[in-house]
Write a protein that binds this DNA or RNA. Sequence first.
DNA 1: ATCGAAATTTACAGCGCTGGAATTTTCTTG
DNA 2: CAAGAAAATTCCAGCGCTGTAAATTTCGAT
Lengths: 341, 341
Amino acid sequence: MGVRLQDVAELAGVSMKTVSNVVRGYEHVSAATRDRVQRAIDELGYRPNLMGRRLATGRTGLLALAFSNVALPYFAELSRAVSAAAGQAGYRVLLEETDGTLEGERAVLTSSESGMVDGILFQPSTMSSAEISRHRSDLPMVILGEGAAPLPVDRVMIDNFEAARVATAHLVSLGRRRIGFAGHETQNLSSTSLQRIAGYQQALEDAGLRPDPALLFASREISPSGAVEGVGQAIDAGAVFDGLVCRDDLAAIGALRALHERGRRIPHDVAVTGWDDIELSRVTFPSLTTIAPDLDELARRAVEMLIERISGFSAAGRHELVGYRLEVRESAPSAVPEETA
Amino acid sequence: MGVRLQDVAELAGVSMKTVSNVVRGYEHVSAATRDRVQRAIDELGYRPNLMGRRLATGRTGLLALAFSNVALPYFAELSRAVSAAAGQAGYRVLLEETDGTLEGERAVLTSSESGMVDGILFQPSTMSSAEISRHRSDLPMVILGEGAAPLPVDRVMIDNFEAARVATAHLVSLGRRRIGFAGHETQNLSSTSLQRIAGYQQALEDAGLRPDPALLFASREISPSGAVEGVGQAIDAGAVFDGLVCRDDLAAIGALRALHERGRRIPHDVAVTGWDDIELSRVTFPSLTTIAPDLDELARRAVEMLIERISGFSAAGRHELVGYRLEVRESAPSAVPEETA
DNA sequence: ATCGAAATTTACAGCGCTGGAATTTTCTTG
DNA sequence: CAAGAAAATTCCAGCGCTGTAAATTTCGAT
């Protein structure tokens, strides 16, 4: 039902291959021919059919981006960064949500069809690295984030341990001495939570503070409401703290609410830090001091590495770190005296 | 570089077509043959190549979903609803972001390749219906939301005018008499804003209240920060109001912050409503009373109609409304006395 | 003019799969 | 057991495009 390459070729009086060359900007085509073909293309309103092209080239121009859930702001923002980076390289991005479940992750990796995408950027939540490497060894893959990653596979992440240490040290520098951690799972802790808690603990020890298990406020589920509940119950149970490192910004937003509900002033009574620097962290009340990963760089490197793999690069897995910074806002302002709106 | 249908056929000792029939679950295949073929498939680890299938069938199994930006929670949630609905029908969804600009919208509609998707669900922000109908009359399309929609094209939305009236009437029922509207554009108002403002005005008139232009607090940009600024400046300039209808939840979150900063108590001094019922609206402090569109139904109908169009349905455009409800939370609790945490 | 090299253009064989028609096998029924 | 119907399977062409290699044209230098 469309105009075919053949139709253009006939109208322009050249071979299909020449039209193909013009369409794809091949350089060795004479100006005269190019004009004639272009005129035919315009006249017929020809658009290349991607399926034909793909079958012939074996490439789809599509990268899969798999993570738990776009409705989590961090992932939505990651998705934009990845789309931008992929677009630069001439690729489009197909989102695949796993809902953070093992089945979801399996479904993505074992999807029974092939050829849908040229490669995949995968942020695992629960799958073990053993299982990851077992599946789909054929599909070029780059792991995003601090989840499991088989050694042979490329991975890009920020240094979670170090960033958590920095965030915690910031609270220490504000003079806080009873610093809690909130928002991790109640059991089966994700590697994300584990690494962040480890960094938090390190900072406490560096400061000569004794980590107190009673100040770890887990969430029944990883969500803002989970944190409202977790932090709220802890306070009601008598937990005393003047600083709170949250696993992520959503947990921090929940913590803010739990603290507000109980009349705690932030940062006066409790200074809070988040993680991810989602857009909303600027407009919460108070705005959130948070770890801001360099998403653009993360996406850029990940896409770059994936494209190298697609192009045949096959050395051992490269595990790279990208930068982050501590974005200091109202919920834990800088140590230097400063107005807090 | 993979196992081909042909390879399976040879191993199983049947024709390619029979293998194809087994793969796709065609019913008229004897149990014995099916077993033999299945064994060959398993043994070789065969996976159908989608490109081949697509070229042969002319269908891609992909629907495009185009809107401004996934980082806006409403769109992220819409995207999930659409993916779910499309998945039910055997389709996958390719996200296309327009950034809310005319160029972005044009890029999506005129993308120079064809055959990438079977149809498109498009939520226009700025494009006129005339231009929409001019482009890509070949691609099956369904318009989402209250933006421009050419008559011949299907569209699904909620009744924005009526919902805005309901939200505003809710504030009236709480005894509020100076009710503002916040979060719309400073100029070139989107049809979304226009319809919501119209419903807001209607409710005021129904209640015998005089709409006051001084209570329309536009945002320099459609974002939470835009609302923080817009509402903040209005208060500082002396605007007096005890109710505030926000164009969307993000504007409401911004308004919450602007009010908090100035010591206004919510809902005591100012009752606030949002729009969209994004997940975060449950955990803001206070949580938001908001218009909750029936996203699942919206997505379900939109996908259904799009698939009908793809299947050849070609009658005039159907313009359908789906439901919504007023989700009453803390920022504007129900009239009946009730505790507000 | 003439010849070899460089630049352009073309022919052709598929990429992997499916639709539809045609064929073969199997099942029913008298 | 034959004949016809139904079920199962195969054949074949081709979806729209591109890679490769071969053919043709053009160009520069003799």
